[in-house]
Amino acid sequence: MCPHEPSCPSSAASDREAARTVAAHPEQGWSLLCNGIVLFEDTGELLPDGAVIAPHRPTDLAISAA
């Protein structure tokens, strides 16, 4: 149960990534959110029920010649 006020979004909510970070391991490339989601630096997610969300946001910017 989330102790924050207001409560963090649940792992089933569309804004689930807005939950607070409770453990960060940037050297390993992941963080644990308050709602039980493991969020990876490539934007992939591991949900508490074991479901996997593939990376879904661009992490690199395209370099364009001007």
Score class of each variant (00 low, 15 high):
residue 22 V to I: 15
residue 45 E to H: 08
residue 15 D to H: 08
residue 33 L to K: 05
residue 6 P to Y: 07
residue 66 A to R: 13
residue 54 A to M: 13
residue 53 I to G: 03
residue 9 P to K: 07
residue 64 S to V: 15
residue 41 E to W: 04
residue 11 S to A: 15
residue 11 S to F: 15
residue 1 M to A: 13
residue 53 I to T: 04
residue 46 L to R: 12
residue 63 I to Q: 10
residue 35 N to C: 05
residue 36 G to I: 05
residue 35 N to F: 06
residue 11 S to P: 05
residue 4 H to P: 00
residue 48 P to C: 07
residue 33 L to N: 03
residue 63 I to V: 13
residue 48 P to H: 09
residue 47 L to Y: 07
residue 39 L to S: 10
residue 58 P to H: 12
residue 43 T to A: 02
residue 46 L to S: 06
residue 45 E to I: 00
residue 66 A to N: 15
residue 40 F to P: 00
residue 35 N to L: 05
residue 5 E to S: 15
residue 39 L to D: 08
residue 36 G to F: 06
residue 26 P to T: 05
residue 59 T to H: 11
residue 32 L to D: 09
residue 52 V to K: 14
residue 21 T to K: 13
residue 38 V to G: 00
residue 60 D to V: 14
residue 6 P to S: 06
residue 63 I to P: 04
residue 21 T to W: 03
residue 31 S to M: 10
residue 44 G to W: 01
residue 11 S to H: 15
residue 4 H to R: 15
residue 2 C to R: 05
residue 2 C to I: 03
residue 52 V to A: 05
residue 19 A to Y: 07
residue 37 I to D: 00
residue 2 C to F: 03
residue 64 S to H: 15
residue 12 A to L: 12
residue 54 A to T: 11
residue 3 P to Q: 09
residue 62 A to F: 12
residue 47 L to T: 01
residue 11 S to M: 01
residue 46 L to Y: 03
residue 13 A to Y: 09
residue 19 A to K: 05
residue 12 A to K: 12
residue 6 P to K: 07
residue 1 M to N: 11
residue 7 S to N: 10
residue 36 G to A: 04
residue 31 S to Y: 03
residue 37 I to F: 00
residue 54 A to D: 14
residue 57 R to D: 06
residue 33 L to V: 06
residue 58 P to G: 06
residue 11 S to V: 03
residue 30 W to Y: 15
residue 19 A to E: 02
residue 12 A to T: 11
residue 38 V to F: 09
residue 66 A to G: 13
residue 18 A to W: 10
residue 26 P to W: 03
residue 53 I to L: 12
residue 3 P to S: 08
residue 54 A to S: 11
residue 50 G to L: 08
residue 32 L to K: 15
residue 21 T to L: 10
residue 64 S to E: 15
residue 9 P to R: 02
residue 55 P to T: 01
residue 20 R to A: 11
residue 42 D to P: 04
residue 3 P to H: 13
residue 1 M to T: 14
residue 15 D to G: 08
residue 13 A to E: 05
residue 62 A to E: 15
residue 16 R to G: 03
residue 10 S to C: 02
residue 14 S to I: 08
residue 23 A to G: 00
